[in-house]
Design a protein around this nucleic acid. Structure first.
Length: 619
DNA sequence: GCAAGGTC
């Protein structure tokens, strides 16, 4: 009996082989330097029993979609033909050696045991592997492992309880692949050809459309528009100052601000008439600053730009490099909760010899350890990102590698710590009919803050003593006038939050889309004052967004709704509630209308480009 | 020369 096991990536193949094979695993090289074949014997029990096992892997998707070559010419093929042109699915160039490996290893196997990640893409990759294996062995039996972590007991259990691949999940992915491919090609060709023809400055540019890149651009343009539309407004506020015990206490007005000067004067007069302020409430309560939740990919890609001066893309790349070198766990995960079974203190133990956070880690082991908080996500495939091994900064290839490793490690230690604890005093005053209040915060125990410099919690200090019902005459009582400040342009973490909330891209691809809109010169990253960066749309980016708005589609292509709707429907396919072909046809019908209207009203895009690329640029 | 999603 021979069983061929295939995982989504080498790291899983290696781990699973070492669990199932015990110490008796033989490693064979393949023609790919990333992929190995692992041979061992294992008793699967049940109908398979003891078998000779080869465990190998692919490296993500094996195949890619393309049109037959007669559709290659942009200029001679009308774009709308691509709505129903045949799509050829073939093994992608760099996956050929992997496909050959599977064909060869499948030849003498009775079972093909799929060990891809248990998510939607993993089911599809499983189908791709199946199709390739059946070329050399049409009779091979296909089963699939149901696993969501690499704990020994769990993996052994999964090996004895296979299930079938989910056709529904794979169908959802295949719908996504077809739609993204067709629509990307159709609208990219349309926009590029028409705009290149009309504008000299665009002649060498590809004006791509993508269902993720366009909404990404849209978010940047929306914020830019809000900044453009901003009109400063005057507002007025009451200021009440009390001086006692050599402290100056600024009370803030409960109404915060009013936009009418006369109103402010009336409120002030009401206070002045009362002459004295009365303490109506003194509330002392414990205050807490919660430690962070375990680190997911989305959160990591936000922290890079925010705290490390690295782009989201670069942050993820560095984390991947740390992962392949065995320093941190798998960096592409939605999970922000640790499974109860994980030995977190064991990891802390490995971190304890460090000269950077060793003392802190030892403190956790000596009694300060607290169970991490749980976030709301669990992809049932990977744990939150955490350190695997201690590494010295001199052993890493760059300072940036160290910055990311340090962030992941400090985040992990913070997760295993106690919340920061403080004491808060809130004093409420009444003067006439108006109310004022001030808060004093004293930090009592910093706890996780000691190892986690990315969080700041600054105490405002102790307030002087106030007694309830005490009355006093304020030292200062007057009106302040100010002007509202403009919103700021979108930052990278804000953009990622918007993409995340609207289902644009996946955790691992958001950074790519952000990179892509810059590469296409739709969006420009620029430095704010200080270290931070912000995104502004280019003239071309604005022109595209405005132009599509003008066309008057029900949902503009630069808005996130279309993608969000598609995501929801993919979930329905996954649940078996919607047919794959039905969704594809429905969506293509919808986009045929979008295409014809866009083509018919293409002048909107041209006019918009003329305005933003030429006229406004000349001024 | 087109997309987005895996992965190294």
């Amino acid at each position: 009996m021979r069983v061929l096991c295939v995982a989504e990536k080498n790291s899983i193949a290696k781990s699973v082989a070492s669990i199932l094979g015990g110490g008796q695993v033989k490693r064979r090289d393949t023609k790919s330097k990333y992929i190995k074949n692992y041979d061992f014997t294992f008793d699967f029990g049940g109908y398979i029993g003891t078998a000779q096992v080869t465990m190998t892997s692919v490296s993500g998707h094996l195949t890619e979609a393309s049109f037959p070559s007669e559709y290659n010419s942009w200029s001679s093929v009308p774009q709308d033909i691509l709505f129903d042109a045949r799509i050829v699915t073939s093994v992608s160039k760099n996956a050929n050696v992997l496909a050959d490996n599977i064909k060869k290893e499948a030849r003498n196997a009775t079972y093909l045991y799929i060990w891809t990640d248990c998510d939607r893409e993993g089911e599809h990759i499983g189908m791709e592997i199946t199709n390739v294996a059946k070329i050399s062995n049409p009779r091979i039996h296909v089963i699939r492992a149901d696993f969501n972590n690499l704990e020994k007991r769990h993996i052994i259990q999964a090996s004895k309880r296979p299930r079938e691949l989910s056709k529904d999940a794979a169908d959802a992915v295949s719908a996504r692949i077809e739609l993204d491919f067709r629509l990307g090609a159709i609208f990219t060709r349309l926009q590029t050809l028409q705009l290149q023809r009309a504008f000299e400055v665009l002649q060498n540019k590809v004006i791509s459309y993508g269902p993720c890149q366009f909404p990404t651009l849209g978010f940047v343009v929306d914020r830019w528009q809000r900044v453009e539309d901003f009109v400063p407004e005057n507002f007025w506020s009451l200021k009440l100052v009390d001086k006692r015990e050599r402290q100056t206490v600024n009370f803030s007005w409960k109404r915060n601000r009013v936009y009418d000067r006369l109103a402010a004067i009336l409120f002030l007069e009401n206070c002045l008439d009362a002459k004295i302020a009365k303490v109506v409430k003194v509330n002392k309560k414990p205050a807490k600053r919660y430690k962070p939740i375990p680190l997911s990919t989305v959160e990591l890609t936000k922290m890079g730009p925010k705290y490390l001066r690295l782009s989201s893309k670069k942050t993820l790349e560095l984390a991947e490099s740390l992962y392949t070198n065995g320093f941190v766990s798998y960096p592409r995960t939605e999970t922000d909760q640790f499974d109860a079974g994980m030995d977190l203190q064991g990891i802390i133990g490995k971190l304890a010899p460090s000269e950077d956070w060793g003392t802190y880690a030892q403190g956790l082991l000596d009694g300060n350890y607290r169970t991490p908080r749980k976030g709301k996500h669990n992809d049932r495939a990977h744990p939150p990102i955490h350190p695997i091994n201690l590494v010295h900064r001199s052993a890493l290839s760059s300072q940036d590698h160290w910055k990311v490793y340090e962030l992941i490690t400090r985040r992990f230690l913070a997760c295993c710590s106690e919340n920061a604890i403080g004491a808060e005093t809130i004093v409420d005053l009444q003067m006439g009919d108006e109310f004022f209040s001030q808060k004093g915060l004293v930090i009592l125990e910093r706890n996780y803050l000691d190892v986690y410099p990315y969080d700041k919690w600054t105490g405002t200090g102790q307030l002087p003593v106030y007694q309830v019902n005490e009355e006093f005459i304020p030292n200062v009582l007057n009106i302040t006038d100010s002007v509202t400040t403009s919103p700021s342009y979108l930052t990278e973490p804000e953009l990622i939050s918007l993409m995340d909330a609207n289902g644009i891209g996946t955790d691992a691809t958001m950074a790519d889309h952000i990179e892509k809109v810059q590469e296409r010169e739709y969006v420009i990253k620029r430095k704010k004052r200080g270290a931070a960066t912000e995104f502004v749309p280019s003239s071309l980016g604005i022109a595209l967004a405005k132009g599509y708005d003008e066309i008057g589609l029900e949902w503009s292509l630069t808005k996130p709704f279309l993608r969000k709707e598609m995501e929801d429907q993919l979930k329905n396919i996954e649940k078996g509630q919607l047919d794959r072909d039905a969704l594809v046809q429905m969506t293509l019908t919808q986009f045929r209308d979008v295409f014809h209207l866009t083509k018919q009203r293409f002048d909107c895009l041209k006019n918009s480009c003329r305005l933003y690329l030429i006229e406004l640029n000349e001024g």
